[in-house]
Amino acid sequence: MATNDTNRFQAIISHCKEYGFIFPSSEIYDGLQAVYDYGQWGSELKKNIKDNWWKSMTQMHDNIVGVDASIFMHPTTWKASGHVDNFSDPMIDNKDSKKRYRVDHLIETFADDLKAKGETQKAENLLDEMNALLAKDDYAGLKNLIEENKIACSISKTCNWTEIRQFNLMFSTQLGSVAEDASEIYLRPETAQGIFVNFLNVQKTGRMKIPFGIAQIGKAFRNEIVARQFLFRMREFEQMEMQ
């Protein structure tokens, strides 16, 4: 991000806090990264947006209805949808700075630097090779790509990297009163699955004729390893979607 854009972005963040729109969560205890509270004006603004979206999406259409599905769902839901096996990102750590990077972000940032230096073709070739390796889940190849191009950590400026590992983006917790007998469940990473599993219930009870839509507004949670960009990449957020 260019310096002017960075300064402008920081000014927007400061303005949001100063005027009661957004506060860092639990700030008096040093806060929690990528988690935010909506202040007195932010909560009103968010409510107005949600109300307007809900009215325009459901109340103004005869063939679109709303649901409010629970955050907790049977874990088989996420297994069937592929989230348990595939909802993950390849990560790499720098051993000197201890900073963790998402592999594609690390390489893309390096490619942007190459383009800024006028080495556009080299950057394009690098990205093409990265995408091919990601498609094959070739993590050894990705690490070799990083090492061959001498891609360094932005903090330590070294190329002392760990092996690439997969990190699942779903938050898990235990359901049950006794730890030994508890079953693992997940905080939903998206709201769409609550719509899908209730399709038949809505269709039958509402006597809906296909095609019809189901809308929902609700909380979703993602264990973002590289959380950044203010409200644009949070660990707890709300989604408004219609399927």
Results as ranks from 00 to 15, higher is better:
3 T>D: 14
3 T>F: 07
15 H>N: 08
15 H>D: 14
16 C>F: 15
17 K>Q: 13
18 E>Q: 12
19 Y>R: 12
20 G>D: 10
20 G>Y: 12
22 I>Y: 04
22 I>F: 14
23 F>H: 12
27 E>M: 00
27 E>V: 11
31 G>H: 03
34 A>D: 11
36 Y>P: 02
36 Y>D: 03
38 Y>C: 08
38 Y>Q: 05
38 Y>H: 06
41 W>N: 15
42 G>T: 06
42 G>A: 05
43 S>A: 15
43 S>L: 09
47 K>Y: 12
49 I>L: 15
51 D>S: 10
52 N>W: 12
55 K>H: 10
57 M>T: 14
59 Q>T: 04
67 V>E: 00
72 F>T: 01
74 H>W: 05
78 W>V: 02
78 W>P: 01
89 D>Q: 04
90 P>H: 06
92 I>Q: 10
95 K>I: 06
97 S>T: 07
97 S>V: 09
98 K>S: 13
103 V>G: 01
108 E>I: 08
110 F>A: 14
110 F>D: 03
111 A>G: 02
111 A>T: 00
115 K>Y: 00
122 K>Y: 07
128 D>T: 07
131 N>G: 01
140 A>L: 14
140 A>V: 08
145 L>P: 01
148 E>N: 15
149 N>G: 03
150 K>L: 06
151 I>Q: 04
159 C>E: 13
160 N>K: 11
161 W>L: 04
162 T>F: 09
163 E>D: 14
163 E>Y: 08
166 Q>S: 08
171 F>P: 03
172 S>R: 07
174 Q>L: 15
177 S>K: 09
178 V>Q: 13
179 A>E: 13
180 E>R: 06
182 A>S: 15
182 A>C: 05
185 I>R: 01
185 I>D: 00
189 P>S: 04
192 A>C: 14
192 A>Q: 09
193 Q>P: 00
195 I>P: 03
195 I>N: 11
195 I>T: 04
201 N>I: 11
203 Q>G: 04
204 K>P: 01
204 K>V: 11
205 T>L: 08
207 R>N: 15
207 R>F: 11
209 K>D: 10
209 K>G: 05
212 F>V: 05
215 A>S: 13
215 A>F: 11
219 K>H: 14
220 A>Y: 07
223 N>M: 04
225 I>K: 00
228 R>W: 09
229 Q>R: 09
234 M>H: 07
240 M>G: 05
241 E>F: 13
243 Q>P: 02
